[in-house]
């Protein structure tokens, strides 16, 4: 039952992450909060692999975490690129107004 402590820490991290995404305004902070939420969920999954003394480690949640990490990294990188590009466009808002398919 040593995993319980890690499950609790993971869930507290997840709650902090959810709070951060909702409350914080800047997209970078939101992205970081989402990563904290993700880390919390992954910590829960890593911890639950420990099924008690004498039992083999459950490899399924570990594999899920490896998959989830790659997904999280990809989404975060895309979020950073979008954030940086939207900053550019706020600095130069008029550059696309002549586009015929432009909306807005």
């Amino acid at each position: 039952m040593t995993g319980l402590g890690y499950v609790v820490v993971g869930l507290v991290l997840a709650a902090m992450g959810i709070w951060g995404v909702v409350v914080l305004a800047h997209p970078l902070r939101k992205l970081l909060a989402l990563n904290i939420l993700g880390s919390g969920v992954f910590l829960v999954l890593v911890a639950v692999a420990d099924r008690g003394a004498g039992q083999a480690v459950d490899p399924v949640p570990h594999a899920l975490v490896l998959t989830g990490l790659v997904v999280a990294v990809s989404a975060t990188a895309l979020g950073l690129v979008l954030m940086l590009r939207s900053d550019d466009d706020r600095a130069a808002p008029s550059r696309d107004q002549s586009d015929d398919k432009g909306v807005g």
Binding site: V7, V8, L11, V12, A14, A15, I18, W19, V44
Partner: peptide, 10 residues
């Protein structure tokens, strides 16, 4: 939220 999550987790 944290309390609920931890309770559910335990």
């Amino acid at each position: 939220l944290a309390l609920g999550l931890v309770a559910a987790g335990v």
